[in-house]
């Protein structure tokens, strides 16, 4: 589903966020991306979501290389990825229903189906019945779950999440992560960037560890190792 081949990313300000990073994630896999802040977790997610293009190397998502994808194909590319943010990026002036429905609306789904799927997604995150409330009327944990509902509503084959539990207490964090695991159980590929070691241990999934823009360990391998390629 996701293949990074010797990917480097240098930002216009000269900072090299990633250096020769290579890894692969299979379809239906759930993977944690860990490391200190500044290690390059967010950059990996941005490269997957095509918010950035690699400076060197290739990033392939669902069979498409992001380096060469034409601008007019980017919207269709992004529609197959559900993105969850730490600050959840909800539209404060729109009710929950509209927020969750947005990916379906941009994809041109019929109204009836939109209605059905939004309710199903809100049901999955335990927020059914709050469609007409505004995001600010919900708790932080609930807002985060609205963000997750929006990410999954169009049933994308890939979900990526950047610190989705950053603002949540441990119980809520675990609850949110279990939610992601449920999606993974039904075949969705899930990539979660987090610094919460407690959660990573609890869920016992593959873990890719980044440090200073390089892979320091990959839990898919029998033993964590330092990638030698420099």
């Amino acid at each position: 589903m996701i293949v990074f081949e010797r990917v480097s990313k240098r930002y216009p300000n000269g900072r090299e966020a990633l250096t020769h990073v290579s890894f692969g994630i299979e379809s239906g896999e759930m993977v944690f991306l860990t490391g200190r802040s500044g290690a390059g977790k967010s950059t990996v997610l941005k490269l997957v979501a095509l918010l950035e293009r690699p400076s060197r190397g290739t990033v392939t998502v669902n069979g498409k290389s992001t380096g060469t994808l034409k601008a007019r194909h980017i919207p269709a590319f992004r529609r197959q990825i559900g993105v969850v943010f730490q600050d959840h990026k909800l539209l404060a002036d729109r009710p929950i229903f509209d927020n969750v429905a947005l990916p379906l609306v941009v994809a041109g789904a019929p109204l009836k189906e939109t209605d059905k799927r939004v309710r199903a997604a809100l049901d999955q995150v335990g927020l059914l019945g709050k469609e007409q409330m505004l995001p600010t009327e919900l708790s932080v944990g609930e807002q985060q779950r609205v963000g997750i509902a929006r990410a999954v509503v169009s049933k994308p084959p890939l979900i990526i999440a950047d610190e989705p539990t950053g603002n949540l207490d441990p119980d809520l964090s675990l609850e949110v992560m279990r939610l992601f695991r449920r999606f993974s159980d039904v075949g969705v590929t899930v990539l979660v960037a987090t610094h919460d070691q407690h959660i990573v241990r609890e869920l016992a999934k593959r873990e890719i560890v980044l440090a200073s823009g390089e892979i320091q360990g990959d839990g898919a391998d029998p033993l964590p190792h330092v990638v030698a390629s420099r």
Binding site: A49, L51, R72, P75, A76, F77, R78, R79, V83, K89, L91, L102, P103, V106, A107, R150
Partner: peptide, 10 residues
């Protein structure tokens, strides 16, 4: 931004 992020075309 959010609309473009979830795949809204120009």
């Amino acid at each position: 931004e959010v609309t473009k992020l979830v795949g809204g075309s120009n």
